[in-house]
Design a protein around this nucleic acid. Structure first.
Length: 487
RNA sequence: GGUCGGUUGCCCGAGUGGUUAGGGACCGGUCUGCAAAACCGGGGACAGCGGUUCGAAUCUGCUACCGACCUCCA
């Protein structure tokens, strides 16, 4: 039975859905004012893994991942400028043009990483009316106040009735003493009050009418609003990066409790950060590498381009709650490991069944299930797949055998866990369109000629063909029967 | 400063009381015209100092170092 680590309780809990057979999950998506980097790949892949596993377990899943296209402010909640608007002005584009541009590119990168699209991908800008209604509810309940056209959460009042800070393990006193004094907070009662609605400054391009002012929603509003709109006032899982725990998710809890009188989320899940030389990779650290740069190898820290599946595999090699430290060396190791898995998968499809099974293949499905049930332990699943790869290679080498029933099961387990759950694109090699068939045939022909040359001990011709193909990027392997090749 | 987390072999990275993690690199062997791949075997690790225990990488205390959040952030 699936256990997931709930940040709320700081322990692993059995997943018990609110509605039998259904699972609702909400994940904080990207702010679309820049290209996706490795850090965006982490939550996308982590929660893709969860989504895929829930589907595998037979749940009907509604997966909501938002697009943040309004409301995140440049510097602080009071003086900042809407990020999207700023970028738009700089580039002389319509705000929605910027949003569309980066959304398209985000989708392209996610598709490359084999991240399944969510069931619903709501835009904050498309839910202004709902957000205004949500703010109004909080006002009606008396947990917010209007000040100069903006609406703020009355955190002090809220904290008297609800435990504020429970998710991130803070209490109000800590927050009081630790919150930096910022300029221009005069319109807030307390520094820790956060904006639910902000009056737009004249230079703002993106703003909407509301009962309080022409403005835009506070940056935590969209998740509370859209999460409950599409998943219900209570739903199962909310995910996101650890850096969002405070204040973003804490504020979400406060907003939901204030408006609805109860919490919305049963399981809070947080993926850890990606580091680069031990430091967090992030937009504001100027040390981030975009996914496109990875795919093209265009960054000084990268020794070469890395395929999307290498990135995915690299991220799955570590547990989602651990930090994972990036280096070109680590990625190269991942690349080789992935190739080994790919090779084993290809061979698995070609294996011939024997009378009995002499290699250790039993219990693979159970072991993989056990690992996934244990808070999505993808590294352990990979460990089992590698163990299985050894068995496959043994049989492939003719040093062992496998029965028809075991072979069939093995193929199914690999399909289920490696392809469907881990989301590795192992089976899309050389799928047969006409061009590809002709191409394969041509390469086979060359290697047949080489084989003849070898039989005639014409090493010159033999090596010439192998070297030339290797030069072009082919990998040639001699086997007892003849040869194998791959690109 | 407050809160939380981490420190595992050459590198990445699992593991929570006793049993081989796994991957990459490296070394040796088998195979091979050579090579590659594959297979077999190998060495090496649990930050430091105490404590609990028959037994600790795993529990506990202290120390050192690193990081995250507290401010936009995945």
């Amino acid at each position: 039975m699936l256990q997931i680590y709930n940040t709320l309780t700081r322990q692993k809990e059995y997943f018990r859905p609110i509605h039998e057979g259904h699972a609702g999950m909400y994940v904080c998506g990207p702010t679309v004012y820049g290209d996706a980097h490795l850090g965006h790949a982490r939550p996308a892949i982590t929660f893709d893994l969860l989504y895929r596993y829930l589907l595998h377990l037979g749940y009907k899943v509604r997966y909501v991942r938002n697009i943040t296209d309004v409301g995140h402010l440049e510097h602080d909640a009071d003086e900042g400028e809407d990020k999207i608007a700023k970028k738009a002005r700089l580039e002389q584009l319509e705000p929605m043009e910027v949003v569309q541009y980066y959304t398209n590119r985000y989708h392209r990168d996610m598709e490359a990483l084999n991240v399944l699209p969510p069931s619903i991908e709501p835009h904050a800008s498309g839910h202004i009316i709902e957000q205004i209604a949500f703010v109004q509810k909080i006002l009606d309940k008396g947990y917010a106040y209007v000040s100069d056209g903006s609406v703020y959460m009355d955190v002090e009042k809220y904290a008297k009735d609800y435990p504020y800070g429970k998710l991130s393990g803070r209490n109000l006193e800590d927050i009081v003493t630790d919150t930096r004094e910022l300029d221009g907070q005069s319109e807030k009662k307390h520094s820790y009050d956060f904006a639910l609605w902000k009056k737009a400054a004249p230079e703002h391009i993106m703003h909407w009418p509301s009962p309080w002012s022409e403005g835009f929603p506070g940056w935590h509003m969209e998740c509370s609003t859209m999460g409950t709109k599409y998943l219900g006032e209570e739903f199962d899982i909310h995910g996101g990066g650890m850096d969002l725990m405070f204040p973003h998710h804490e504020a979400e809890i406060a907003q939901s409790c204030a408006a609805l009188g109860h919490e919305s989320v049963h399981y809070w899940m947080h993926n850890n950060m990606i580091t680069i030389a031990g430091k967090k990779m992030g937009k504001s650290y100027n040390n981030f590498i975009t996914l496109e740069q990875f795919f093209k190898g265009e960054h000084e820290l990268l020794s070469k381009p890395f395929a999307p599946m290498t990135i995915r595999f690299f991220i799955l090699m570590a547990h989602y709650r651990s930090t994972v430290d990036f280096s070109s060396e680590a990625l190269e190791a991942a690349e080789k490991g992935y190739a080994r898995l790919q090779e084993a998968y290809n061979r698995l499809q070609k294996l011939q069944a024997g009378a009995e099974t002499s290699v250790e293949v039993s219990g693979l499905r159970e072991k993989c299930a056990e690992a996934m049930d244990d808070d999505l332990n993808s590294p352990i699943v990979l460990q089992h797949l590698f163990d299985s790869a050894r068995a496959i290679n043994t049989v492939y080498d003719g040093k062992g055998s496998i029965s028809a029933a075991d072979l069939d099961e093995l193929r199914k387990v690999w399909k289920d866990y490696a392809v469907d759950i881990l989301g590795l694109r192992l089976e899309e090699q050389g799928a047969g369109d006409e061009n590809r068939k002709a191409f394969d045939g041509a390469v086979d022909l060359l290697l047949d000629i080489r084989l003849d040359a070898k039989r005639n001990k014409d090493w010159g011709t033999s090596d010439r063909i192998r070297n030339a193909l290797t030069e072009l990027g082919f990998k040639i392997k001699d086997t007892k029967e003849g040869y194998e090749w791959s690109l």
